[in-house]
């Protein structure tokens, strides 16, 4: 059982939960983006932003440490980030499931990313249900998403039904009125018929979509879970100062797999295309027992040729 909140009290509620921190929500300017909200009236819950929320946890470009060889005692100075507490409101189930997958990678005991961890610990996730699906490219119904959020809102006309998904979430809505309701599951027109693609690496269905690929990297930049990055060292002219930073990269580029000596492992476009999908549906599952894809359809929607990997998979020959 959850709680209920009248719509006219939404802004009041949001300002209460985000007090002393930042509220992040979809804001419509030329297009819809997740932004730090300055005016509550800017929040737009119609449609979903094409750009996912991953940037708040691992920005497109992030400094890691500074180098200063003139300081003998401390040549390396790690970049300390201070983060205000943040609340993301209006994320969809796919957005937050994307974080669930990234948590597996960046919060693992083996390889923990301190920057990512800090950002995750300081962020509350307030989701909203998709009813109807916000884009014709959505296929999350096929992707077994989990209830991964602190609070989840469902639009009921003049009020929101709210369900808590964490202890933190429960305390936020403790004062609200109880309400008995079951949130309907998300319905998508697009379906992915199978997720077991191991047998189909050489299927001819790959070719048709691959021929359209421009290798522009928009699919990976817009993906909720793609966070591959390049590590870059930059040295000043004096050869004493410098920094190391990371920047998002993409497996769809020719030179992504270039190694010392100049060898490139995935020279052919089709191998890059397949790698992206196999990573999402097979390699990640082998390690973490879940898919890396959330079915948000952003890779399709952002693609200049609308390349649709579900079409490939749904057209495999048995």
């Amino acid at each position: 059982m959850g709680k209920v909140l009248e719509k006219k009290r939404l802004n009041e509620f949001l300002s209460k939960v985000s007090k002393g921190g930042d509220l992040i929500a979809p804001v419509k300017r030329d297009t819809l983006r997740f932004e730090i909200v300055k005016d509550f009236n800017d929040i737009c819950l119609e449609g979903r932003p094409l750009f996912p929320v991953k940037k708040f946890f691992s920005p497109a470009k992030e400094d890691l440490f500074n180098l200063n060889l003139t300081n003998k005692n401390k040549p390396f100075d790690e970049e300390k980030i201070k983060l205000k507490p943040r609340v993301i409101f209006g994320g969809r189930l796919c957005d937050f499931n994307g974080l669930l997958k990234l948590d597996k990678l960046f919060l693992s005991e083996e390889y923990q990313d301190d920057y990512y961890k800090l950002a995750r610990e300081n962020t509350l996730l307030l989701g909203i249900n998709c009813d109807p699906a916000p884009s014709e490219y959505c296929f999350c119904e096929s992707m077994d998403l989990e209830k991964y959020y602190d609070l989840f809102f469902h639009d009921m006309g003049d009020k929101y039904y709210i369900e808590a998904g964490s202890e933190k979430g429960k305390t936020l809505i403790i004062d609200l009125e109880d309400y008995d309701f079951t949130i309907p599951s998300i319905k998508c027109e697009k379906k992915l018929y199978t997720k077991d693609i191991s047998k189909y690496y050489d299927d001819s269905a790959w070719d048709k979509e691959n021929d359209k690929c421009l290798s522009c990297g928009k699919c990976t930049a817009h993906c909720t879970t793609c966070l591959c990055f390049d590590m870059i060292d930059e040295l000043e002219a004096d050869v004493k100062h410098g920094k190391r930073f990371k920047e998002w990269d993409s497996c769809q580029f020719l030179n992504f797999t270039e190694v010392a000596g100049g060898a490139i492992f995935r020279k052919d476009r089709i191998n890059r295309f397949k790698h992206r999908i196999y990573h999402k549906l097979q390699y990640f599952r082998e390690k973490f027992d879940m898919d890396m894809c959330t079915g948000c359809g952003r890779c399709i929607e952002s693609c200049p040729r609308l390349i649709d990997f579900t079409e490939v998979i749904n057209n495999f020959k048995d």
Binding site: F51, C216, K218, A221, F253
Partner: peptide, 29 residues
Amino acid sequence: VFKWLVQGKRLKVYDKAVCHECSLKENYC
């Protein structure tokens, strides 16, 4: 490039599509 030259580093030209950098800036396509 000047810095790389004096440091003796291998020069490297940017070889990713314009769309990549444009997407990182969240531009409306």
